[in-house]
Design a protein around this nucleic acid. Structure first.
Lengths: 337, 337
DNA sequence: CTGAAAGCGCTTACAG
DNA sequence: CTGAAAGCGCTTACAG
């Protein structure tokens, strides 16, 4: 049987309530007593029983991490594990645990979130994605459950703490970067407008073009599903693009392959710039210029602000922006006039 | 306040112990009573309080997932998230939760595992990797904590339940596949012998060559860290390899880039075959022939056998082998005599 | 600054 | 087949 508060109390000659207060480092207890109790805790290798604590103070010290409805493609996107790593770094530090919530459909996810909540398994949730009309976010909001989102929420924006990049600005930056290299005809592939992050990036892209006095050609914009024919067609437009902004590194990999198949060389015939700066970007051939969005920090900050909120429900709502930066590699070339 | 067992008991006109037994679907309770109690549970949206259950029956319904000591490269390898997805699929089904354990060093990992154990936060652990002399495995074993490993354990092999592929056979299969295409000079890159999985694959590679009456050239075998010069040198050997077996898809990506830089075309001048069949393999250019090891199932089965062991400590030790298969793509070419 | 006691929401012998 | 009661290991008013 494991060591309990009683064992410590007996050996330190105090009441269990005193031991409990020492665990919480309560200012009510004298330093002398604390020292004595702590010595015994150390000597016996005491660790508070987590279930008992949860039951008594109704805190679980556990965060639920909600993944988007899962298909293989999404799960194999290293974005998620990297943000989980950031979360994990903080939870381990704060002695929290995390519970991944996954599901094949929104209904499945929702029902799992509800169950976890009713069973009091977690103190709050981190939503790893953001999309319009998300029933899960509706539920969390209506039930007044603590949650933070990674990305820009589409519902209850001002009331919900979230951690995000300035994807709108990143979209602009990327276009400016290409324009400085002399590019005038810039397409966009991976404009998956259902997902907020992509929507924002596309918005920045459009804005940058307009600010430069260029018109946005709607035929220049593609979603993340495309065939070789789609891409061929893109290059048959007059004028054809000389550069493409890509929604993220995974899409950039697919696109690069399509380009190769239809005989368009990167970066000579077409420059590519992308977002996320996954380790893949560095492994591509040629290595991909990509916007580093510091995914690890997105996760870390999301966990941090969620825990703050849990520990103090009066904590203000925060909108945290993690800076991004373009990591130049070899996928963009200069165009001479 | 949430609905408790008392509320249900009162409304169903039974004792709380009866409600508890209904939750557990105990055969001692008559169907009539069960039906009545369940109706009330449904009506009030009752969900058992998980902390209270854990405290009373000393089960946490939570599994610890131990990641290898983390650097970015490892975390961004989709292998881990994919296996976690497999685990998650089962835990969600069985109403278990999982707690990721991460750390920058083995000491950090070990201390977290110890803490989780003493605080009774999890019922058992899944170790997502396998390497020699792992202090964490030593601890789990000595403390008689339930655990399963994904991969082939290096310690206490016969006593520990594990889920693995037959990596030795996979190594052989891959060489046979290349030989059938006419290759006689086959190198190996990514022979990271510290990690069991790679060790086994290399062992299979050697064996297949020997069985075919070929001698194994030690200069043909590289680890996962290599420079362009290393690879150039490899091709300056006499005879140069016409095909390379690569430790996994991530390494294959790096290798492909190195090959490209030193001007060796794949698959014309050199065939590549790899392991894991990550989604990346399909996105490479040309797409990579790779051995599918069904990572999802590795995770699913590991979770399944761990839960079986937790629920019945008498459960026998199992060694589960998940079948693999070569997924042919475009990275291997036939060599004519 | 410290202790005795009640309570958190379950489970499980024990008794009938 | 069902119930009364003790107990799991903590926390937290309350009293002093």
């Amino acid at each position: 049987m494991a060591v309990t508060i009683k064992d410590i109390a007996k050996r330190a000659n105090v009441a269990t309530s005193t031991v409990s207060r020492v665990i919480q480092d309560s200012p009510k207890i004298s330093e002398a007593t604390k020292a004595r109790v702590r010595r015994e805790m150390k000597a016996l290798g005491y660790e508070p029983n987590y279930s008992a604590q949860s039951l008594a103070n109704r805190m679980t010290q556990s965060l639920g991490i909600i993944m988007p409805e899962a298909d293989v493609a999404i799960f194999q996107n290293p974005f998620f594990l990297e943000s989980i790593r950031g979360i994990s770094d903080l939870t381990n530090e704060k002695n929290y645990t995390m519970a991944l919530v996954t599901g094949k459909t929104d209904e499945e996810l929702l029902s799992r979130v509800k169950t976890m909540r009713r069973a009091n398994r977690v103190d709050g949730f981190i939503v790893l994605y953001s999309k319009p009309d998300d029933p899960i976010v509706d539920f969390l909001h209506n039930e007044k459950i603590a949650y933070t989102v990674i990305g820009k929420p589409q519902q209850y924006v001002s009331e919900t703490t979230h951690v995000d990049n300035d994807n709108y600005q990143a979209g602009k930056d990327v276009v400016c970067y290409l324009m400085e290299l002399g590019h005038k005809h810039i397409a966009y592939v991976g404009a998956d407008l259902e997902r907020t992050v992509h929507k924002e990036r596309v918005r920045g892209y459009r804005q940058a073009l307009e600010e430069a006095g260029m018109t946005v050609n709607p035929h220049y914009i593609f979603g993340s599903e495309f065939t070789d024919d789609d891409i061929s067609e893109l290059f048959r437009l007059q004028p054809p693009p000389t550069a493409i902004v890509v929604g993220d590194d995974m899409i950039a990999m697919s696109l690069q392959r399509a380009l190769h198949r239809i005989g368009i060389r990167m970066p000579e015939a077409c420059s590519l710039i992308s977002f996320n700066n996954l380790i893949l970007a560095d492994m591509m051939n040629p290595p991909l210029t990509s916007v580093d969005i510091d995914i690890f920090k997105l996760g870390y900050q999301a966990a941090k602000s969620l825990i703050e909120k849990i520990q103090d429900p009066e904590e203000v709502t925060k909108h945290i922006i993690i800076p991004h930066r373009i990591v130049e590699r070899a996928s963009c070339s200069r165009i001479e006039e």
